[in-house]
Amino acid sequence: MLNPADLTKMLNQANSGGIHTTLLVNSQGALVAFSGHGDSAVRIKATISSNIWLAYENSRHNAISDDGMHCFLASCEFGIIGVQKAGSSGVLLCMFADKTVGLGILRAKINTMATFLNGPLANIIAP
């Protein structure tokens, strides 16, 4: 069983050192779990992240090798964002950080978190 309270606590552990929001979003762009502070636009962030992921995923056959996309990092106007698949059901883990955070540390964190979540999230069945 997945305990929503624990899940949020878990996500919250990543929120340090410039990373301010960590969330899980399903393949339909809906927010699954969220931890972060000070920003109301999480749903929008979730939607956009999942949509970018899907856009790449849909065209990966001509761009990326067959084993699919592992992670993407984007550096935006006001911060950086990392997205990686967690579990087998298409749930995505997204992290949002300040501009000051290095892409490497974001990648390391998101990788660690995703690996950890792979276990518990395997229980979720894709819709």
Binding site: S40, A41, I44, N51, A55, A74, E77, G79, F96
Partner: peptide, 15 residues
């Protein structure tokens, strides 16, 4: 709705 890769996203400016 589909994403146009040429439309640069500025996540954070949507809030």
């Amino acid at each position: 709705a589909s994403m146009d890769p040429h439309e640069g996203f500025a996540v954070g400016s949507y809030s």
